[in-house]
Amino acid sequence: MNLIFDGHNDVLLRLWRSRKDGTDPVMEFTKGTSVGHIDGPRAKAGGLAGGLCAIYIPSPHDFSLKEPDAQGHYVTPLDPPLERQWSLDIALEMASIAQRLDRAGAWRLCRSTADIRKAMAEGVFAAVLHMEGCEAIDTDLDVLETFHASGLRSLGPVWSRNNIFGHGVPFAYPMSPDTGPGLTDAGVALVKRCNELGILIDLAHITEKGFWDVAGITDQPLIASHSNVHALTPVARNLTDKQLDAIRDSRGLVGLNYAVTMLRPDARDSADTPVSAMVQHIDYLVERMGIDCVAIGSDFDGATIPADIADAAGNQKLVEALKAAGYGGEDLDKICRENWLRVLASAWHE
């Protein structure tokens, strides 16, 4: 079995919601559940050895993709900006769940690639704390220091909504990622401080202008943790060839997103999407950027994924499809985990 380190999941969001409904998140993760995509038993069954686990502040109202028109096109309005204190409360609650899982031995919070490798060798899920959208962070960045001390080692300045640090892309098809402004002055300061602290910057949801703003100031490889190929699926969330070239030139990476809306040529939200579509995006990324710049960023617990994968237990179906497409040995190891460990080591100053 090829062990996988996954660049993005929303399991903390699911566990936070379960806790609100009265379920113990530690028990749900360790004993397993039929809900969502990731828990301990399903991760072990599918070789999911660890990943970046997101603190993501959900919309206070119902947020869903806009229905496509007769041509299959859609533009979902950006989610409104969020209030910071409310966001901070939720972010702390999710961080608390991550710490409880760590104390219970359900997973291990990792702060270095040595921590990740040790956890994987011992069969313990290697969790890295990520923040998807920095609504909980203040412009003075004091809260950033606190989260870093608690294990935060990766963040995306924005989700697909605007905040004090920058602008996000909408969920829209067909549409360029060049949808608005990029980083604010506060966003520039955030990137620079993350460089100093050794916190990975994730470009998965930012506008194209924001992408280039980060590229101009960061000392890290360029990372899009859960994004796909715009030339194959022209949604605003996917990456143009020019962006892929910049990621390649920085020795960064793109993590394949399992979200069907970012895999299908028609961008429809249908689980009836073949695994071959995932391989097609991998092939394109490898041809454009090289094998060292391609990885996995599933978006488990945050999106509709192909029915043939279903959940974390189905990861090896993608691995088998990649083997059938000619990937093997060291190349498959790079896609599954080694490329992530390389860029994390770089961003974390190891």
Results as ranks from 00 to 15, higher is better:
148 H>K: 08
175 M>L: 11
151 G>C: 01
155 L>D: 07
166 G>Q: 02
142 D>E: 04
159 W>A: 02
147 F>W: 01
157 P>S: 10
145 E>H: 03
172 A>W: 08
150 S>G: 09
150 S>H: 11
165 F>R: 00
170 P>L: 06
164 I>N: 02
187 G>F: 15
171 F>G: 04
157 P>M: 06
155 L>Q: 11
170 P>Y: 05
174 P>H: 10
151 G>L: 02
184 T>I: 12
168 G>E: 07
144 L>D: 00
179 T>M: 13
145 E>N: 09
146 T>D: 15
159 W>V: 01
184 T>G: 07
140 D>H: 05
152 L>P: 03
161 R>P: 02
175 M>C: 14
176 S>E: 15
143 V>S: 10
159 W>E: 00
185 D>I: 12
145 E>S: 10
162 N>H: 15
186 A>Q: 08
154 S>D: 07
148 H>F: 06
180 G>F: 04
178 D>P: 02
176 S>K: 09
179 T>H: 08
188 V>D: 05
170 P>G: 10
178 D>R: 07
166 G>P: 02
168 G>I: 09
186 A>Y: 04
141 L>A: 05
152 L>W: 02
172 A>S: 15
148 H>W: 12
143 V>I: 11
169 V>M: 15
177 P>M: 03
173 Y>L: 09
144 L>C: 01
179 T>V: 13
140 D>L: 03
151 G>F: 01
162 N>Q: 13
184 T>D: 15
188 V>E: 07
171 F>H: 13
147 F>L: 01
145 E>W: 02
143 V>A: 14
164 I>C: 08
188 V>C: 12
140 D>C: 06
144 L>S: 01
186 A>I: 08
165 F>Y: 10
144 L>T: 02
175 M>V: 03
160 S>T: 14
177 P>Q: 04
186 A>R: 04
182 G>K: 00
157 P>W: 04
182 G>H: 00
146 T>E: 08
150 S>R: 15
163 N>F: 03
176 S>H: 12
147 F>R: 00
146 T>S: 14
177 P>Y: 01
183 L>G: 09
167 H>A: 07
163 N>E: 05
141 L>H: 05
154 S>N: 13
155 L>N: 03
150 S>P: 04
177 P>C: 03
173 Y>H: 13
176 S>D: 15
145 E>Y: 06
147 F>A: 00
154 S>Q: 14
149 A>K: 14
174 P>A: 15
148 H>V: 02
156 G>W: 05
172 A>P: 10
151 G>A: 02
164 I>G: 03
184 T>Y: 10
161 R>C: 10
149 A>C: 07
150 S>Y: 14
150 S>K: 13
169 V>A: 14
168 G>Y: 07
177 P>T: 06
179 T>Q: 12
166 G>F: 01
149 A>S: 12
164 I>M: 09
179 T>C: 10
180 G>Y: 03
140 D>I: 06
171 F>D: 07
161 R>Y: 07
